[in-house]
Design a protein around this nucleic acid. Sequence first.
DNA 1: TGTTTTTGTTATCAAAAGACAACTAAAGGA
DNA 2: TCCTTTAGTTGTCTTTTGATAACAAAAACA
Lengths: 143, 143
Amino acid sequence: MDNHPLFKKFVAFTAAVHQITNDITKDVKPETLTPVQYKILEYIAVSQPVTLSEISDCMHMSMPNTSRELRKLTEKELLVKVTDPADRRKQGITLSPEGQAMIDEVFRGAAQRVGERIEHLTAEQQQEIERALDLLQEKIFYV
Amino acid sequence: MDNHPLFKKFVAFTAAVHQITNDITKDVKPETLTPVQYKILEYIAVSQPVTLSEISDCMHMSMPNTSRELRKLTEKELLVKVTDPADRRKQGITLSPEGQAMIDEVFRGAAQRVGERIEHLTAEQQQEIERALDLLQEKIFYV
DNA sequence: TGTTTTTGTTATCAAAAGACAACTAAAGGA
DNA sequence: TCCTTTAGTTGTCTTTTGATAACAAAAACA
């Protein structure tokens, strides 16, 4: 597999995705957040509600460190924790209205940049891209 | 564009790519490198030869910090700097044999994991994936 | 009931990473 | 030639991040 033709493409592709998404969100990220805090906020945004353990697992962070960063985000009033009535050890974490507004703003900026990259394409080409995204997510980048 | 159908897919897709590549390289990364040092080594691997300025630009790091990390990687004998004879301010940075061996090892591990994700697919499906990677890289994730 | 497991918190220390000032050396112009 | 720009270095300080130990409370279980 090492010299499997797909693998070289895979490496180049993922490198490109990382670089482009980095560039796209680079200067729309709120400067009041550290990189890790931003990552956490983004993760909560697409997966809410989540528990602390889930964040810890998915982001490969220890529970103590996750707990600390969540506390900081809570102090900034960007998220809210709701104790699960069925299991009072767990807490469902979601974005506060302020946190949601912040993420919406970031996504708006990112959407703008993505739009610039595809607006010159025909509707048909855009559909092709949509199908390609679906295909890859289903066959390779599934969780 | 904010609620452009493609954008939602884009967000979900890039999130998935980040998570999967993270998981795939997670425990094949050499523990003698810090995360930033690994990222730099990986960047050099796919772009060599590069200059310090290019690394600084692409990775959004200041020149002093980039210089420091490159020094550490050089001390670990993982890369070599060759002064450009045409412009002696510049230095072409490449992986040393040891550095190349380390990256090859990481890529071998990653290739293994990717292989597991696609080996059950038919040759036709694999070609479809290849085409999808090409398409997206050409139309969206171009540098 | 007592014990263990799960879920999370607090505190502390060390390492990694970022920011910035001051500097050198080569190249490019005027 | 002198001045400016480009490419990179060194040193220092601060912030961020990671690691670990010790803890508490709820749930699960024997």
